[in-house]
Design a protein around this nucleic acid. Structure first.
Lengths: 224, 224, 224, 224
DNA sequence: AATGAATGAGACTTCATTCAT
DNA sequence: CATGAATGAAGTCTCATTCAT
């Protein structure tokens, strides 16, 4: 497994103000507001004024804590990835054998993706508006997180030969597929509960990894 | 399965010119150029001039065949979805029992997604810049195509009880997961050939659907 | 009285075509259509295409008979003034003593102004979009026509001392006031018939000129 | 007489800035400049840059105080009508019997029209470039002002039977005719002083209303 | 540190006019 | 003579960013 060698010199957002506590607070305000409006109107359609209106900061003030509108987008993406990572990390912190931990982790990530639908959507819609450097920083964070799954899968594979070929590819699959809950929201079956969708998606992934799902499967629903 | 009731009043792009052949030609020029530049710089960073430069049409001329920059984006999305649909349709046109056709279809869709990486990326990045009406038209097209998988899955399930729960959800999964090849391009293992990535992804999906992959699986590669 | 010394070198509209009969016909088409659309949308809001649509001439064809959009406006103003002049000339062609002729003329001009409301409005709204030269040509035509009233007033004054001071000023007044029927259309009393409005306006002018109106005046209507 | 029922929901021009004093000042600048350039080149031929140049405001700044170029035209018309109304109101504020007041008012309005020639011209030339709503607001203002004459005429008529038929029509006449001084500027006799033109026009109106002008009339000037 | 007015580059779009067919 | 596609200049308006207060 590749080590943290991929370490990218992290992009920094510089502030005019030196008061770090204040900077942190104001940026929190800013990012919260930005997530709200970016989510509604998209990055480009949103004006700095819009963000100011919602965050209750005036334009001039905003530029005390950020150097450009794109900085805000970066902070937004950063916050989203961080929250997402934290949630998943909590989900990964389960005791037990590797297989059990993997099971929990998959369930965890799907659940998180379901909860954070809106921000995930935002991330996928707008992150490519970042400049190369910023984007790379964000992607590196995501990478770390894919790698944590890569490690988990490797361990599980040690423990019990899985029907899995490449761990990195598998890690990508199990971290990517759950985003479907956000990006395909409009097409998912309306007659299933979130719980059912989550369960079935997890089941699919387990089988895909070659782990037999011992839980009784729901009977096949007749549709249409 | 929902019938054609979902039919959305399709959005139309109107042209100033009445000469349909010419309109078709010019739009082809236009869309080709737009795909190129949108792909590089994104929709918003691209100016109508940019498109004109690449398509060798002057600004004024462009507006003879399209009424707004957003019209161009719509035509771009439309073309992408159409080509994608056609490719998949070809892949679905295989003789044999339902399971065999499903196998072929999965392989087909993953292959197509791999080939059309750039445009799929473009579609996912920029389609949300469309207005509601246009977006709905595009999504309706995607929906049709998810439904064709839904039908295929239902047939396969008739033939041989699959370990599958909801066909619609499954159809979403197998049509969504392949987009990973485009959207996760940057994170996929560099040491695998495209062929391997495609095979493994298909394998994962087959297992996920409860179909045992009888092909000898590649031996597990030791990584890192 | 100033003679035709005011003669302005008349502005000419040149055509690409040499076939004078055709030129005349096409221009007639053109002007008719232009009056219609200019009247509705104004000169600037009207495109050459609009005129083409209504006149059933294509853009290219239009430019065979005219050299610019402004040429069309000139032709329009010219036609309006001409028709107006002709109508008034007919009204002036009455037998009798000067006072009788004046009476008839006043009635005539008010009537004409009432009939030609729309075009008069157009003339007053758009003529100042003409270039200096064109405008002067049009105004010269109007001038001629003011002068014809000037002559008439002078004759009437010879015949019977009027309570009139300056004939030119008076001529301006009696040729200007009737335009009120077009320009104040929106403010005129809705409960009077056109006939009444015309009569009263003529009566006002006659008294203004010091000619006693022998016709029985309508009784004073109690209002509001 | 129509009561205040005519009250039109007044069109408002909204500003980005909240500082009302500043908004007022900047708009004053803006309107002054606009009157100047619109007067010279007309509304359509004038660019926002032109207005900026004269008002010493940059384009961006202008749009802080106004939302469109048409807003500026509205403000211009509004200012013109207001000034005009104020001037006339002052002229109407004369002590004495109704006839005396009417006399003063007529003289006043003609004088004002003479003074404000340029802006009146502008008003008549460009006001129809306003959208329906704005135009109605402006016309409503003019209406009020016609009505004030209507009232005055009614009073005068009570006092001493005038040879006047419909007060509303008469009010229109006496408020319309004076605009001749602006719109017929080019045709008015050059050999009369403004004073003479004003006097004669007032005389004409008084006679038209059936009020005998007791002032000795200038002797008839021999012309041409 | 906060404010919000000012700036000006730049985008989209329209449309009169030209010209090859 | 008719057509209508092509042209490109020019205009309005937006908005990220700066800066004096």
């Amino acid at each position: 497994m590749k080590p943290a060698a991929t370490k990218v010199k992290a992009r920094r957002v510089v502030a005019a103000s030196k008061n770090t506590a204040l900077v942190r607070d104001r940026r929190t305000q800013l990012v919260g507001a930005a997530i709200e409006v970016f989510g509604k109107k998209g990055f480009h359609a949103t004006t700095v004024r819009d963000i100011g209106r919602v965050s209750r900061l005036t334009q001039g003030t905003i530029y005390n804590y950020v150097r450009s509108k794109e900085d805000i987008l970066f902070l937004v993406c950063d916050r989203i990835v961080t929250e997402y990572q934290d949630s998943v990390r909590r989900a990964l912190a389960v005791e037990g054998d590797a297989i059990a931990r993997l099971r929990a982790a998959l369930r965890g990530i799907v659940g998180v993706m379901h909860e954070h639908q809106d921000t995930i959507l935002l991330l996928y819609h707008e992150s490519h508006n970042l400049d190369r450097r910023s984007l790379r920083t964000i992607l590196a964070r995501v990478h770390e997180f894919i790698e944590s799954f890569e490690r988990l899968l490797a361990e599980a594979n040690e423990e019990k030969r899985l029907q899995m070929t490449d761990v990195r590819l598998s890690a990508n699959i199990v971290t990517y597929l759950p985003t479907m809950l956000a990006l395909r929201r409009w097409a998912l079956p309306k007659d299933l509960t979130s719980e059912q969708i989550i369960n079935d998606t997890v089941g699919f992934m387990l089988r895909g990894l070659g782990i037999v799902d011992k839980q009784p499967t729901r009977s096949f629903p007749l549709r249409g």
